[in-house]
Design a protein around this nucleic acid. Structure first.
Length: 566
RNA sequence: GCUCCUGUAGUUCAACGGAUAGAAUAUCAGGCUUCGAACCUGAAGAUAGGGGUUCGAUUCCCUUCGGGAGCACCA
């Protein structure tokens, strides 16, 4: 498609159009494949847009072009009709040659980028908000890779914050002699929620909690083993979840290791005059002249905050990987905080590109998700629900399949359904999560895409015609549905760079769906294996293979696996 | 109170300032002796209100109303 656009731009240049040329797609295929709007040139030429379009068409028409068959002026637009045969041959050959590399580009060549996600907390539940974080982070990792970057995914686990203290306090206070259940991490999450509630309701407990905090920070020999053990429970569970979700971190940083360094940095910043003493003896950085308020580095009681550790974290990350760029994925509620953090890093001399990607809250149909209200949806609960449903569905469809095969199918489908659902919308937008919708398998969903892949696999498996690429007669692919498919396939490389430019995974999910839908449309109108003659069968088989190839490439960006049959 | 985000079919979401505002779902009407019906075709259905900028506004600006988030000892 880039080649096509380049050629069209050349044609337009010949017609006297200068500067930046923006090409769009006409609203419907009958109006052409690529359009050029003449509003700007018209202004420049001081004529009305319609005349400009006519004039451009006149000039271009006489030019010969391999890829452009016909040019029309419609009102203020110049519409280009592509030469379907040339395009089919070009696109299908390219896909066949590049396979899983089709769509890659080298724009990030030589650059190293850190992507930090999901940076959750130990001793707390892993809910669907964290899951959204992982889905987005995963996709960013793949997108950067496909755009040519060297990527280092990292995680930052907060294992030493207030929440840990509260959890440990609650455990000792209310559950001291209990035997932990099988799901220990969930147990901790529940205890944390309970402890928070208790402290809120009974302020007198504050003293006890403070006591625990002090003991923890002093590595009290009685408390420390409990801390380390419970911490391990959480980490083990997270690693299990990460493995299931296809997350691979190059490094994990822990709050407990950074807190001390942060306090030292805070002292340094005080000495340098970057930080100052604020109300009640707290240490702050005044960012008012940047319109960023005041950021607090240390509480008046000497305790650190999130920011206290985020500064040494940034130092540690860059030091370890020598990266050019750092990306952190968190909820949008931290947008302001990250502006402050990045400004401080800039003040103390960070030159690298720092990007914060905020993703919107996952709200529930019933209201806002909150541990306090007890309406948090845990990732594993959601997973199990979808998995069971899909397992049942698969078992009903394939009574002859082994249980192992059914389980594997259900697993892949579950991942596809859940990940796709989390990536349907722009990252920054809040989404309303509806279990019923997330567990539906029709329409704009992961399983819909996988269904198309399975259909194509079925066709390819049954295809007796061994298509010999050199002999494929591309000119047979002349039906409108075929041409549409080819256009979609040709657009894929642009999708890969657009999605990264906008940090928008939904560009990919949308593309997957459009392509899959277009394929189903083609499939219902034309037969592949029962086409009129062998040449046409061979050409369509190759088209099907290309669709499958590109769908799988796109799914790979979403870290979604496909399968032979479902 | 201040700052930021946001308001599009019943619902969940699309639409570089450009052509007839697209999908999904729900509803209604159709389609399997034919490559897999977890599919396809059709119908009906929307830009919160009011100003402005522009040849042209869902998009930009102002304003009213509604929703969300953040604003010094929480992460």
């Amino acid at each position: 498609m880039q080649e096509v656009k380049k050629e069209i731009k050349n044609l337009l240049a010949v017609a006297g159009v200068k500067g930046q040329i923006e090409l769009t797609t006409p609203p419907n295929p009958e109006m052409g494949d690529i359009a050029f709007a003449c509003f700007n040139v018209a202004k420049e030429w001081k004529i009305n847009p319609k005349e400009a379009a006519d004039k451009i068409k006149e000039k271009i028409q006489t030019k010969k072009s391999k890829l452009v068959k016909r040019t029309e002026a419609v009102g203020p637009y110049v519409n280009f009709y592509l030469n379907a045969v040339e395009m089919a041959e070009f696109v299908l050959r390219q896909i066949d040659k590049q396979k899983d590399k089709y769509g890659d580009n080298k724009s990030g060549k030589g650059k190293k980028v850190l992507i930090e996600y999901p940076s959750n907390n130990t001793h707390k539940e892993f809910h669907i908000g964290h899951f959204r974080n992982v889905a987005i982070g995963n996709t960013l990792v793949r997108l950067y890779e496909k755009n040519g970057y060297k990527v280092y995914p990292v995680n930052y686990l907060n294992d030493f914050g207030n929440h840990v203290v509260k959890c440990l306090w609650g455990l000792l206070k209310f559950h001291k002699n209990e035997k932990p259940p099988a799901n220990k991490q969930k147990w901790l999450g529940d205890i944390y929620a309970e402890a928070s509630q208790q402290v809120r309701d009974n302020p007198e407990f504050g003293k006890e909690v403070a006591e625990i905090q002090k003991k923890l920070e002093e590595h009290d020999p009685e408390l420390w083993p409990l801390f380390m053990e419970t911490r391990e429970w959480s980490i083990e569970k997270f690693e299990k979840i990460f493995k299931q979700l296809g997350v691979r971190h190059s490094a994990v940083f822990y709050e407990k290791d950074l807190k001390g360094r942060g306090q030292k940095m805070t002292d340094d910043l005080l000495l340098k005059g970057v930080a100052e003493i604020g109300e009640g003896g707290a240490v702050i950085v005044n960012l008012n002249k940047y319109n960023l308020d005041v950021a607090m580095l240390r509480k008046s009681n000497g305790a650190g905050l999130y920011l206290t550790s985020d500064l040494p974290l940034a130092v540690a990350k860059f030091k370890k990987f020598n990266a050019d760029e750092s990306i952190v994925v968190t909820g949008t509620e931290q947008n302001f905080y990250f502006k402050q953090l990045y400004k401080i890093l800039e003040i103390i001399g960070f030159k690298n590109k720092l990007t914060h990607i905020g993703y919107g809250l996952v709200n529930l149909k019933e209201g806002k998700m909150s541990s306090r209200l007890g309406n948090v949806i845990l990732y594993e609960d959601l997973h199990d629900e979808v998995y069971e449903k899909l397992k049942m569905e698969s078992a009903q469809r394939h009574t002859d399949w082994s249980e192992k095969k059914i389980n594997e199918t259900a697993h892949i489908l579950t991942m596809a359904a859940l990940k796709f659902d989390m990536l349907k919308h722009e990252a920054a937008k809040n989404i309303t999560f509806d279990t019923k919708e997330a567990t539906a398998f029709d329409g704009f969903t992961g399983p819909y895409i996988l269904y198309v892949v399975a259909r194509i696999n079925s066709i390819l498996a049954k295809s007796k015609v061994k298509s010999q690429k050199s002999k494929v007669k591309y000119n047979l692919l002349d039906k409108p549905e075929e041409k549409q498919l080819l256009l979609f396939l040709a657009q894929y490389e642009e999708i890969v760079s657009e999605a990264l430019r906008d940090y928008n995974p939904s560009t990919i999910t949308r593309y997957c769906f459009d392509l899959a839908q277009q394929f189903n449309n083609f499939y219902n109108k034309h037969s592949v294996l029962n086409a009129e003659n062998n040449n046409l069968i061979a050409a369509r088989v190759q088209l099907c293979g290309a669709v499958k190839n590109v769908l799988e490439n796109a799914l790979n960006l979403l870290t979604i696996d496909s399968m032979e049959e479902m």
